[in-house]
């Protein structure tokens, strides 16, 4: 006897659509890997093939590392994203705690302002912030890359929503035990909010690792460049565009995020479902 269900048409359609979508998303990525593995001659050949006839990934990588100080740029990326994240947490957690658990006049108004802040795109404030950094003499420095992002309204909002779910009793118990209000933030709320902090960390790190707009505006010095900027500058070298090494460099700079994603895939998905943002 057989219980073989007839495969429903809708299920097939769904999978075809999903595969098509995935292929579309992955195509540039695969093309990048493919190009990074081809020698110059094959890149400009008229025929279209994904698998290179002659593997040149090693040469392209060597050339990429020779032409630009990729390790330095990766290090810049790490310094900037980590500093931004740490400072964002240091600001967002106490702010979110106050908005979620303390009673004071104007709390709702302040929270409305936070929500309003989420609506403002960073490009809108770019010029005033640029001018402020100029007046402060901070342009073309790590500070210029980090400072504008230390207050994350999205982070405050996300943590506030999470703190709302922490029982008030826990906060009261901490007060009875003699923990100060700041102590409560770091000793009680932070450990309880690790999933939310992780989710926020993923968003923050991805956004600032990949940010092209802001570093492009505030940086001049080559040694401060963040990874996306470095790759873009690669293209403009006087030697002309050598796509092989360029794609190899692109692979190198996205590698940390991809590896991090593979390691923390579950957390990543948890984080996205937690925030309900796609």
């Amino acid at each position: 006897m057989s219980y073989a269900h007839p495969i429903p048409f809708r299920a097939i359609l769904r999978h075809v659509l999903l595969i098509a979508g995935a292929a579309l998303m992955l195509a540039p990525f695969i093309w990048m890997i493919s190009t990074a593995s081809k020698p110059q001659t094959e890149i400009f050949s008229s025929e279209l093939h994904l698998i290179p006839h002659q593997f040149a990934l090693a040469e392209n990588l060597r050339e990429a590392f020779a032409k630009a100080n990729l390790l330095r740029f990766l290090l810049n990326g790490v310094i900037v994203t980590i500093s931004i994240f740490v400072l964002q947490v240091m600001v967002a957690l106490p702010a979110a705690y106050a908005l979620a658990k303390l009673r004071f006049h104007g709390r709702e108004t302040l929270f409305a302002l936070v929500l309003f802040g989420i609506l403002i795109p960073p490009q809108a404030t770019a010029i005033p912030v640029f001018l402020m950094l100029h007046k402060a003499g901070l342009l073309d420095s790590y500070a210029a890359l980090v400072l504008p992002f230390t207050i994350s309204v999205f982070g405050i909002f996300l943590m506030r929503q999470f703190f709302k779910t922490v029982p008030d009793d826990l906060v009261d118990a901490a007060r009875m035990d003699g923990i100060s209000e700041f102590g409560i933030v770091w000793r009680v709320m932070l450990p309880a909010a690790i999933p939310a902090v992780t989710a926020f960390g993923i968003f923050s790190v991805v956004a600032h690792w990949n940010d092209y707009f802001w570093p492009l505006i505030v940086l001049n010095s080559e040694q401060l460049r963040t990874p996306p900027l470095a790759v873009a500058h690669f293209r403009n070298n006087e030697a002309g565009t050598s796509y092989g090494p360029l794609m190899a460099a692109a692979m190198v700079i996205i590698a940390p995020l991809v590896i991090a994603f593979l390691f923390a895939q579950r957390r990543f998905i948890e984080g996205i479902t937690l925030t309900g943002i796609k």
Binding site: P167, D169, L170, A173, G178, V188
Partner: peptide, 17 residues
């Protein structure tokens, strides 16, 4: 609260998870 030297047991126990 802590300086009053009272101890409180809560309905939800409020243990640090």
């Amino acid at each position: 609260p802590s300086a009053r030297n009272l101890a409180m047991v809560f309905q939800s126990y409020a243990l640090y998870p």
